[in-house]
């Protein structure tokens, strides 16, 4: 897909569009397989709980998807384990702990707050603080560069300057 330039695209026109549409239609059932009915729990409330837990767990293979969104083999196995444990009456925390013990912090899409992750969680505040500090520093510098302050301190035009300005304005109007 990378090398297609626009003129080529235009020349191919409707045919290409149709092909792309067909390709998309072919992909759709594959992604629907993530929610394979055979793998779901019969109880909709339990299934919903399993999904919520799964959405908090990272697929270790694709790494930027939750196990609910991923079609990787391992993600399917982990979805299965989550459902097994939900059906067995384990609590959300117990299920998360089970996977956390095996895959570490990385499996949690919402990392726990602890000394190692303080910089991570604190980053928004740190970035905001840095930005505010920079704005304040720039303001100070600007104010210092203009002794006596801003607009009010701008000296009035002298009589000669006013006359020259008048002459320029008159000249421009002609």
């Amino acid at each position: 897909m990378t090398g297609i330039r626009l003129p080529t695209l235009r020349r191919l026109g409707p045919g290409l569009l149709l092909a792309m549409g067909l390709a998309l239609a072919a992909i759709a059932p594959a992604s629907a397989a993530v929610g394979d009915p055979a793998a779901m729990l019969p109880d909709p409330a339990q299934e919903e709980r399993a999904r919520e837990i799964g959405r908090e767990l990272r697929c270790m293979v694709c790494q930027n998807q939750s196990i609910e969104d991923s079609d990787a083999d391992l993600a399917r196995d982990l979805r299965h384990i989550v459902r097994e444990q939900v059906a067995a009456g384990r609590s959300d925390a117990e299920i998360m702990d089970y996977l956390h013990a095996r895959y570490g912090d990385f499996v949690l899409l919402r990392p726990p707050v602890k000394p190692e992750t303080w910089p991570l969680w604190g980053m928004p505040a740190i970035a905001l603080g840095l930005g505010l500090g920079m704005i304040l520093a720039m303001r100070r510098r600007q104010r210092a560069a203009m002794p006596g302050g801003g607009a009010e301190a701008t000296p009035e035009l002298s009589a000669a300057e006013r006359a020259r300005l008048q002459a320029l304005e008159d000249g421009g109007g002609r």
């Binding site: 100070r140 510098r141 600007q142 104010r143 002794p147 302050g149 801003g150 607009a151």
Partner: peptide
């Protein structure tokens, strides 16, 4: 720039801690 000017108008004196040009 005009905001800075307005601020200057509100507080004509330079801030006490403000270092002058190096």
């Amino acid at each position: 720039m005009s905001t800075v000017g307005d601020r200057g108008a509100a507080a004509p004196d330079t801030a006490p801690g403000a270092a002058p040009e190096a």
